[in-house]
Design a protein around this nucleic acid. Structure first.
Lengths: 127, 127
DNA sequence: ACTACTGTATCGTAACAACCATACAGTCGC
DNA sequence: GCGACTGTATGGTTGTTACGATACAGTAGT
């Protein structure tokens, strides 16, 4: 439960925070209906500005992970596994599309990308 | 040979210019050893600042497409097809790695990404 | 060497993103 | 209804990126 959060990382604080919550929810560390730490509470334990936590929570809300209720708190959303799966695939599709757009600008086709991906998956050198 | 370049696009001008040159080189519109338009010349025909063209040319130089010779001009590099292929795969690998990093932050695994990619490739609905 | 071209380096400006500070507004237990 | 908690909205600071303006430096034909 130590920091996990690194202000000097190139990835924004609010993304680090959101990622942290996502895995906690995925690991059922939080159940549907549970309240997340309040904005101020989490911001003080992480030594971060409340607004930064808000930004993380808002991202999670857009993705359907949580619901923010004015004056009450932020609660994890119930979500059928099938729906969650579907949502994950939608995000994956968006990621892949922007990747292909970037690749095209470099003169790299989808086939090359696919090859590189299978190469990366086949060699689990990290982690 | 008209503009192709759109200042209002979210993709930077220098990237649009670099992309334009890449396809021209790939299409053998320029051959190895040929001189590209000079920085000032291209910048004036594109109605763009010389520095912007320089940035594009520098990117192309980093990628090994061209060579900038101070006082002489910018020339397309000779490059064996095998080397070019290898270079393309290296770039594809880098793209895929950063994609997987992004995906991980969203709780999306490589398997989901692979599925999304094959879906996108299988259904050429756009363009 | 001079001149007219080349690329190079440096600085400034505008737009944007991340983060913070602070005031505002709703909810709920007492 | 009051008080202590919640999230919300607004504005400012800082750092980064894209783009431009302008001065510097190398090359080559004459």
């Amino acid at each position: 439960m130590h920091d996990d959060i690194d202000p000097r990382s190139p990835v924004p604080l609010y993304e680090q925070i959101a990622a942290r919550i996502r895995v906690a929810v995925a690991a059922e560390e939080y159940r549907a209906g549970d309240a997340l730490p309040s904005v101020r509470q989490l911001s003080s334990t992480l030594r971060v500005n409340p607004s930064t936590v808000v930004q993380a929570y808002r991202d999670l809300e857009r993705e359907g992970f949580v619901e923010m209720r004015h004056g009450a708190g932020t609660f994890v959303q119930a979500m059928a596994p099938a729906v969650r799966e579907q949502e994950r695939m939608r995000q994956a599709r968006d990621l892949v599309r922007s990747l292909l757009a970037d690749a095209a600008r470099l003169g790299i086709g989808a086939a090359d990308v696919a090859r590189a991906l299978t190469d990366e998956m086949g060699v689990p050198s990290h982690e």
